[in-house]
Amino acid sequence: MQHERTTEHTTRAERETMGRLAQLISRFADIMPLQPAYTFADRVGDLAYHLLPHYRQNVLHNVATAFDLSLNSPDVERIARQIFRTSARNFLDLLRVPSLSDAEIIRSIWVDPAQWATVESLQQQGRGAVVVTAHLGAFDYVGQLLAARRLPFVALTARTVPHLVDAAVLQLRSSRGLRLERVSPVGLRRAIQALRRGEFVGMVADHDFSGRGELVPFFGKATILPLGPVRLARAVNAPILAAFARRLARGYQLIIEPPFYVEQTADAQRDLRRALLRIATMLEASIRQTPGQWVTFQRVWPEQRPQFMPMPFVLGETERFAHYY
């Protein structure tokens, strides 16, 4: 027991150290002029493309499968290299987040006033929404913009990188007050409570990290997408709002799709599947517009169904959680 407590204490200390290191690097990133910093990030992306063969193969496979191209196609390699560069630029942007003001974030992201009016209308009605996005463009900036505009927003996240790297990323994401919750029984309960209060809850929807999703067509090929967003929306009768932060030559553009509700019929499984298919269509359309910004490094179409992650609950219990909370 004493050993377990020591290990836990050491891990906590290491995470705190990584958080402080992230803050230090963030200060350095803020000093660099933006365009030279992006050029440097591009070179880091090129280096990562060569040094990380596992992720390179995953990205090549995703691009070739999505766009019906040969793995050896020059277009596949070109798009894959761009994806690595986009990811490096995203990380640079995340490093700069702590030093940015609300006004600077708002100015950097263009939003169609008519699309933003939809968000404001929901807020005025006292209704929140399940905000779904993809690992597309500067996806971290979806939550940062909503928080900067003082929208009550919480992002549900899952750890997909080693603990220490995860600690640094969480520190940067939450540095300006963005509320984060883990995908867990506690996080799910808080997300449900937030939606009932008329707040907005964000989730990525282009990859199923739990292994408990639904098999659906995506770019014309079957793969598993997460049921979490549609289960959560149906459980509390909240609308689903798809939002994507596309990178531009200068700044970003937030694209907000019209909201929709998950049907509430006697056939819950059919309701969930129809809503998930609708999300898959929106994800696909947005990815097709900027394929070089689809920064997912896991295989979207694995050769076999992913193994379940060791989670202490099943996402299918969302309705039971909603009943009590």
Rank of each mutant, 00 (worst) to 15 (best):
A37W: 00
F40D: 03
F40V: 03
A41H: 00
A41S: 02
R43N: 05
R43Y: 03
G45I: 01
D46K: 02
L47F: 12
Y49S: 10
H50A: 09
L52H: 12
P53I: 15
R56S: 07
R56E: 08
Q57N: 14
Q57P: 05
N58C: 13
V59D: 04
V59N: 08
L60V: 12
H61V: 10
V63I: 14
A64I: 09
T65A: 11
T65L: 11
A66R: 12
D68H: 14
D68Q: 13
S70N: 06
L71C: 12
L71D: 13
N72D: 14
P74W: 15
E77W: 11
E77L: 15
E77K: 15
R78P: 01
A80W: 06
R81Q: 12
Q82H: 07
Q82N: 10
I83S: 07
F84N: 01
T86L: 01
S87M: 06
R89S: 04
D93N: 11
R96T: 02
V97C: 03
V97P: 07
S99D: 03
L100I: 00
L100R: 10
D102G: 01
E104K: 12
E104L: 01
E104Y: 05
I105L: 07
I105M: 08
I106P: 04
R107D: 10
S108G: 07
S108Q: 04
D112G: 08
P113H: 06
P113Q: 09
Q115R: 13
Q115W: 10
Q115V: 05
W116F: 13
W116G: 02
W116L: 07
A117Y: 08
T118P: 08
V119S: 09
E120A: 10
S121M: 01
S121E: 07
